[in-house]
Computed example of a mutant assay.
Amino acid sequence: MSTSSGQYDLSFKILLIGDSGVGKSSLLVSFISNSVDDLPPTIGVDFKLKQLTVGGKRLKLTIWDTAGQERFRTLTSSYYRGAQGIILVYDVSRRETFTNLSEVWAKEVDLYSTNQDCVKMLVGNKVDKDSERFVSREEGAALAKELGCLFLECSARTQENVRQCFEELALKIMEVPSLLEEGSTVVKRNTLKQKPEHQSAMPTGGCCS
């Protein structure tokens, strides 16, 4: 995918966090490629790029997906650094994944997030399993309010509300002046990097020719 800075106005780093198996990778793949395949668990960290236009701005989202397993916790501080948006994912059919958001993941965000203004969104995934639901929409909304998060329920499998998750998060990030400034600074920095640097190359026809 070409990422020359002329093609986007803002660049944001988004994180997906939550227990293993809640469908973080499936949400990401569903959003990036419109595919809904079952995926093996992520090992360590994976990230993908997505360009889209939201609110009249061309955005480049770098979306980081992490393994939910304890043994990858050593990744945390660098993983959280500089993120403008964080999506906390739980599985509506597994109550412990919901409980762990407040007991484990929200605390980790507070501990490691370097952006005070970072926008957070609580996402209840797998609403296609409605008959197996153990966490009501009302409980999800209440926890989101308590944690100061946006809230959406979605299904990576049916793609219901998947695109809305990322678009609503991006719109909210653009409403925060400090995050907007960071997003445009990344673009400016990349533009500078891409200026040709061959002026400093060795002079041709050197003494040994």
Rank of each mutant, 00 (worst) to 15 (best):
L169V: 10
N34Y: 03
Y8T: 04
N125R: 01
L88Y: 01
S93R: 03
S78G: 11
S136R: 06
E139I: 08
K107T: 02
E146F: 13
A142M: 14
Y8P: 05
E146S: 12
Q116K: 14
C149P: 09
E103V: 01
E182V: 06
L10E: 06
Q164K: 14
D117K: 12
R163Q: 14
C207V: 14
Y8I: 02
L88R: 01
S33M: 02
T76R: 12
E103P: 00
R81I: 00
R95Y: 12
Y80H: 06
Q194G: 03
T74Y: 12
K145I: 00
A156P: 01
S20N: 04
L16F: 01
R133K: 14
H198D: 15
L15I: 08
S35N: 10
V119K: 07
P40K: 03
I87K: 02
G21C: 09
K50F: 05
D38M: 08
S155K: 10
F47K: 01
L49E: 02
T62G: 14
S131A: 15
R71Y: 05
L59T: 07
V104C: 02
V186E: 09
R157F: 12
V109F: 08
E175V: 06
S11F: 08
R81D: 02
I32W: 00
I17S: 03
K107G: 08
V22F: 04
F134E: 13
G124N: 09
S184K: 11
G56F: 01
R94Y: 04
R73C: 00
V54M: 03
N125V: 11
G124W: 07
E70K: 08
L28P: 10
K129L: 15
V89H: 02
T97V: 06
S20L: 13
K48Q: 12
G148N: 07
N34K: 14
Q159R: 15
L169Y: 11
L111K: 07
T114W: 10
F72C: 04
S93E: 04
T76C: 10
L75S: 02
L150E: 09
G68S: 07
L52I: 13
H198E: 15
G124K: 11
L49K: 08
N161T: 07
T62A: 15
L111G: 00
F47C: 03
H198A: 10
F134S: 15
T185H: 11
E96P: 01
R157G: 00
L61R: 00
T191Y: 08
S93I: 06
K193I: 13
S113D: 02
L28Y: 06
S184T: 14
A170R: 11
R71S: 11
R81P: 08
K57I: 00
K188V: 06
V123T: 13
C149G: 08
R71C: 09
D38C: 00
S77R: 15
L180A: 12
K188C: 03
V29S: 07
E168G: 10
I32S: 12
